[in-house]
Design a protein around this nucleic acid. Structure first.
Lengths: 254, 254
DNA sequence: CGCTCCCTTGACGACTTTCAATGATCGTGG
DNA sequence: CCACGATCATTGAAAGTCGTCAAGGGAGCG
């Protein structure tokens, strides 16, 4: 694949009429999803020729992934020479403490580039682990030419804004509201990928959610139970059904 | 000034033997500080000719700032057509809530570029206010050419890592440890600018610190008092003296 | 000198964590 | 197909932390 436009090709092409699933599938029965539709939310104004799109498809199928659920993509301390575009599945990002504890910094879903916060050459500063079987596309650093830079800057500034949002969530909410913020984020993320914003299956367990939100998993459970009592959602394990998204937003902002 | 290298010139030149202050000055008696030394921490491997450096100096003195303490640099909703390099002083970054409340997302010190998290063209998504008299350098968006992109990407990935750190601070610490993390961040920031890492004057009040950390100002005060009791620091208002930085780090990590 | 803004300290109440035990679900292997 | 074990989720009670409300003190400025 011609090098400078790899990122643009991976993250910025326009999707045509891609099939759209209404509910996110269970990990175990997850059908291979169409690459094109997964990046729909990230259709950026990169002008791509038809052959670049073809290149993209070829590049994707050429990868030797999927990465199996629970497996490590990169471990903190590994030397870094590539970015990764996430196509299907999900990852958790965390700091590995010396004592083996994880401190989860976030979750990643299709349409994301992995490694934007890493020094350009050097070591990965975080560990990325698959939450389910996950398809990725490797983008060697040397393949990032000038035409791809503009795209990269855009992705990074998006990522920065998301981080600011998570700061807001953590600093200005407590308990149930943090959980609600998290759910709304998840909902938007699913919606952006053409899935249902109201009904979805969380790929991570309550322990990871709690870790991410700076809570205990018991508190997450209690918060979700309380929200169910209030009629703001229905849950069965990791299946979440939000009858009225606007009402949920109301709860967060009140 | 020749356009494409503005950012590289502002943020990436090499400082020679710049004078270095040992303790950060009080806002009110703040002497104009040498631009060169302030960016020392950000000497990135951008190859700059002598005339670019000269351009930089000229560009800086050409600005019609300083921005007075308490004044707004940009308000959320303003249309954006430039980035700003922070030379001397400090800013707070916050979301303006409809009811007038501030939700502080961070503080900015010399050597920082303001606006990295904003969409490239569009509206500012945050408000920036000077905490003391502050000198800035305006960098029009159209002046950012390809040679400056690499530099920009580097700055953004640094900023992203800092945001991850603040996530860690918020999610995995409580009370006194959040305050300690904050002090250590401040300390590093002062040190990076050639000032003392052990003794400094905080430019923001306890209310802002508490806002940033998701606490109440009373709790910040109590935390600092407790740390003083433990002999980990001495304070007099916003003057902080940390006798043993390593001991303070120990407190955070224990 | 008195104002204002900021910081400090105390007491009480609400909310989270902690510890412990039980219940549900899923995957595996018989 | 069922039973079993492991992981995950739920719930209760006790303890600790932080927010809230209220009052007082100190520094700087006009």
């Amino acid at each position: 694949m011609s090098s400078p436009d790899v990122i643009a090709a991976v993250m910025g092409f326009k999707s045509k009429s891609a099939p759209v699933a209404l509910v996110s599938p269970r990990p175990s029965i997850s059908p291979p999803q169409c690459g094109a539709c997964l990046f729909k939310a990230h259709c950026l104004p990169a002008d791509l020729e038809g052959d670049l799109l073809a290149d993209f498809e070829r590049s994707v199928t050429r990868q030797r992934y999927p990465l199996k659920s629970g497996h490590v993509l990169v471990r903190q301390g590994d030397s870094m020479d590539a970015l990764y575009a996430l196509r299907v599945g999900s990852l958790k990002v965390f700091i590995d403490e010396p004592d083996g504890t994880e401190r989860i910094l976030g979750f990643r879903f299709p349409g994301t580039v992995i490694g934007l916060a890493e020094p350009e050459r050097g070591e990965w500063t975080r560990t990325f682990v698959a939450l389910e079987n996950t398809w990725l596309c490797r983008i060697p650093i040397h393949a990032i030419g000038d035409p791809a830079r503009r795209q990269l800057i855009r992705l990074m500034s998006d990522q920065l804004r998301r981080e600011y949002n998570s700061h807001l969530t953590l600093a200005f909410n407590s308990g149930a509201k943090k959980v609600v913020s998290f759910l709304i984020d998840m909902s938007s993320s699913f919606e952006a990928r053409g899935l249902s914003a109201n009904r979805f299956h969380l790929p991570m367990n309550y322990i990871d959610i709690a870790n991410y939100l700076g809570m205990r998993h018991e508190s997450v459970s209690r918060a979700l139970s309380k929200l169910q009592e209030l009629g703001l959602l229905n849950k069965r394990g990791r299946y979440i059904d939000i009858p009225d998204l606007q009402a949920l937003r109301g709860f967060k902002n009140d």
